[in-house]
């Protein structure tokens, strides 16, 4: 970083010399890299380390007070707070449900659209649409579709009287509370949105399996069940693992969908960790120090889980 910055500074000086047209390849390379590098340092590297520092301090971004070093107090507070454990629990449930449903449905969809049929290309493209939408937009229009009075979904399901209809995002059905309904409603939207992503990765895996493996299996009298578990799944497994890795990371830090649909409610039924983090950091509380600590805890969890996945993936690859 420093060397490139120096090169950047020294190049105009060199330009004054007689051999001005001869800017060395090194200088040009550094000139091209420098803006990106500076931007990265300013927007990524610095905040990363600064927030690490802040996580050990008592600090509020809107208070006109310098951060006060408090050691690991923020971490201790978070990890001993039963409320926080409940949010972690919600996030875990959310992750487990969305990822497993996405894997099963994505795999099934991929198997379906792998076969060539009239219009299979257009069907594949249509299936991919949810994935390309902005999560905030998806959250908003599903919020409308879930609406008990004039939502499209209840109407489709035949509930025309709001007083006996489910109010999905409020976790109630016919005015009675059904705990967990809101979480499932949000999970459903996440699955709707991200199943195509899993499908896409699995599909590319499926298409790469050579036909002769199936032909050999057919001649060897393998049943289609056998073929699926012994050829299809192992061959797709590495790509499927990548899909699972991506989806797990995304689900653990999922924020926009939940925030757009429920804002963590009703009560704190859908308060996943990222929503809570946002609340701590910006919504009224402005506990920058504690929020930083929470962010680091989430980061460590994600890194740990990703590591497990990557290790497993490498084992798969080695065969």
């Amino acid at each position: 970083m420093t060397s490139s910055a120096q090169a950047n500074v020294s190049s105009p000086v060199r330009a004054e010399k007689p051999q001005r047209k001869q800017m060395s390849d090194m200088t040009i390379r550094n000139l091209f890299i420098a803006p990106t590098l500076l931007l990265l340092i300013a927007m990524n590297v610095f905040p990363l380390f600064y927030s690490l520092y802040l996580s050990f301090t008592n600090y509020s971004a809107i208070a006109r007070k310098a951060p006060v070093w408090v050691g690991i107090e923020n971490y201790v507070n978070i990890l001993t707070d039963p409320q926080m454990w409940q949010y972690f629990n919600t996030t875990g449930k959310y992750t487990l449900l969305t990822v497993s449903l996405q894997v099963v449905l994505g795999f099934a969809l991929a198997m379906l659209v792998k076969e060539k049929f009239a219009g299979s290309g257009i069907v594949t493209t249509l299936i991919l649409i949810p994935m390309m939408l902005s999560p905030v937009v998806v959250g908003l229009f599903w919020k409308y579709m879930y609406n008990p009075s004039w939502g499209y979904l209840n109407w489709l399901m035949g509930f025309t009287n709001p007083s006996v209809a489910p109010d999905w995002l409020a976790s109630s059905w016919a005015r009675k509370s059904v705990p967990g309904l809101a979480l499932f409603a949000v999970v459903f939207v996440d699955v709707w949105m991200w199943t195509p992503f899993v499908m896409l990765l699995v599909l590319s895996g499926l298409k790469a399996i050579p036909d002769y493996l199936y032909e050999a299996a057919a001649i060897d009298r393998a049943s289609s069940w056998f073929q699926f578990w012994r050829i299809t799944v192992p061959q797709v497994a590495p790509l499927l693992m990548i899909a699972i890795l991506f989806r797990t990371i995304e689900a653990l830090k999922s924020f926009d969908l939940v925030m757009g649909m429920t804002g963590g409610g009703p009560g704190d039924q859908t308060e996943v960790i990222a929503v809570n983090l946002y609340r701590k950091a910006f919504l009224g509380q402005w506990q920058t120090g504690e929020a930083s600590a929470l962010a680091y805890i989430v980061l460590i969890i994600i890194i740990a889980i990703s590591n497990l996945y990557v290790r497993y993936l490498n084992r798969l690859r080695e065969g």
Partner: peptide
């Protein structure tokens, strides 16, 4: 499957995630 033929393909067509033993056992385990 019913023709009861055995085929050796040009591209080997071994089941890549299995051991040699499992590959050999494959047609017998059907």
């Amino acid at each position: 499957a019913e023709r009861d033929v055995a085929m050796v393909f040009q591209q080997y067509s071994l089941y890549p995630t299995m051991t040699v033993w499992d590959n050999l056992a494959f047609p017998l385990r059907s």
